[in-house]
Write a protein that binds this DNA or RNA. Structure first.
Lengths: 315, 315
DNA sequence: TAAGGATATCAGTAATAATGATAACATTCA
DNA sequence: TGAATGTTATCATTATTACTGATATCCTTA
């Protein structure tokens, strides 16, 4: 009566996301051979093909796509059962592993951590700061429960929720003519010396597109994947950078730098919350997520009011 | 990472509904011993007790109840996977097994069967006419895909949906002074000789309550679990009966009987649609269900307009 | 106190899944 | 063209897991 089992669904999901039996086997700590046999079994039971095989990997059939959708839902519910256990056991405890893009390390994370640790002393918290690609990967293979990243191309196996839209801010040293917080039209600047995150970074791609589209004159570009160094560089030279509003908020009045919301048109960054598609959050994770989401939303609202270039940003 | 498996959930559901390992084992074609071990395993993995055992059976703990809810949902989704297969395979086919209370055998069932068979020639249909207890049982243990029964005490393991409310009609032979279709207040009648379905029948219980509550004078009661015989008896004697409006509709103008909506207060019967809680309908079943539901609703509406005793019925 | 019915346990057996090596095939690149 | 690499499928073996049937134990009831 019941053909499919959860192991098969877990395999199916992994294969669907990895587009490969071999890679999927690695991910679920099994052998390629085992997956092959299980999927074969499933296909025979159901009487239809789930994947088209080739020597370069596999592509899901229509049926495979359909089953993938159902399987992720089912697995999420099953994992919810396991999370229930802790909920039922009374106090909130466990371990929450969160990934954060560097933007939030200062303005957002600290207050949340403080509040959360005070409310739920029995929850172990682990926060990893990294760029989006790394975080997506880590969430996908279960090393992290969730992460907040700038929106970019969607990775399979993840469930994403839009959090907020933030302004990007043009940052320069104090030795310029512009007034602090005065909006800037980058395409009308003289050629820029820009320190930007390396290619592959989700924000970088969006910034590149912007620079090209609006023909912003560039003198030269330096790749810096470190916020601290970037800020330091900018404050002591004629190099400039573009940073998310939330990141600039804590030292909005720091005399070492001038901030200029980018306008005509506004350059923005979208933050998204990601979690595994086929797993449900533990209660602790759920509570932490709530806190962090709330904090990011209010911070972004505040950010827009302080740094935003009028109404055009919020849309 | 994944502790529970579908077999365990299936066992859990059966045990929860049967309140017994032994009975559940029978239902799922397994041994008591096997269930015992699987549930033990599950409990140990989750670290909490799901059932309190006694020598008379088991009662679910809070956790057991919680898991039961989740498990039924999960199993329903899993069974949906299997139903998808047929949907994906193109044409609608398969086998639909439906239970019907006798009320609908005539007025409702025939047109639905005709329409459905014409639209979906590849679907095998099997209809069973029986009383609610039998039908509930059959749906629970999977012999039927669904059934329509009068509402009564809920059986665990079933998902129910209210379909419509129908008037009960007092039926007599032509040899009375009342006008055909004239409403009747049973408590003002002279003592009745009533042919009613046997105890255990869901409608019977409701009728009994009504008769007691409103002190309807009774001469004597005969138990007849056969509609045909009942109608025949009533038309050729001074025995009377109470029947659902839908049942009377086909021969509303038959001179062999007089029909009288029961008022002060109206006596009604609720029809509910039942299906297994932890299984999803096949596409064929889904389509058949739609048809039958539609037909019953329109028939009841029509019934109320023809036989209904004013507004008080519809609430 | 005995009988009946419930669950738990245990050891043996049956069924199922994973493994590791290999085969077959396609792609890439020299 | 041919070797190297990387893919999935298959197979026999091993390991794991689940089921069975008998029995033990406990509780309720007569």
């Amino acid at each position: 009566m019941i053909y499919v089992n959860l192991r098969q669904l877990r395999f199916l999901v992994a294969i669907h996301e990895e587009r490969s039996f071999t890679a999927a086997a690695r991910r679920v700590n099994a052998t390629q051979s085992g997956l092959s046999m299980q999927i074969k079994e499933l296909e025979e039971r159901l009487g239809l093909r789930l994947f088209d095989r080739s020597s370069t990997g596999v592509t899901p059939t229509t049926a495979g796509d359909r089953l993938y959708e159902r399987a992720t839902r089912i697995l999420r519910e099953v994992s919810a059962i396991e999370n229930d256990v802790q909920t039922l056991s009374g106090q909130v405890s466990g371990r929450v592993q969160v990934g954060m893009m560097p933007t939030f390390a200062r303005a957002v994370l600290a207050p949340v951590l403080e509040r959360f640790a005070r409310h739920y002393p029995n929850v172990e918290i682990k926060v990893t700061e990294a760029y989006s690609a790394v975080l997506c990967e880590a969430v996908t293979n279960g090393q992290l429960d969730m992460a907040v990243v700038p929106s970019g191309k969607m990775v399979p196996g993840l469930k994403a929720e839009h959090l907020a839209t933030d302004v990007e801010v043009f940052v320069t040293s104090p030795n310029t003519k512009r007034k602090h917080l005065e909006p800037v039209d980058l395409s009308k600047c003289k050629p820029l010396k820009l320190a930007l995150p390396g290619p592959g970074n989700a924000r970088r791609e969006k910034i590149d597109t912007y620079l090209e589209t609006y023909q912003v004159p560039i003198d030269s570009i330096m790749e810096l994947d470190t916020m601290m160094a970037t800020l330091d560089l900018v404050s002591r030279s004629d190099w400039t950078t573009i940073l998310p509003g939330c990141l600039c908020l804590p030292d909005i009045d720091d005399p070492r730098r001038k901030l200029h919301p980018v306008i005509n048109p506004p350059l923005v960054v979208d933050y998204v919350f990601i979690e595994p598609a086929s797993q449900s959050k533990t209660q602790a994770a759920e509570l932490f997520a709530e806190e962090i989401v709330k904090e990011i939303r209010t911070t972004c609202t505040f950010c827009n009011s302080k740094l935003g270039a009028g109404d055009s940003v919020s849309g």
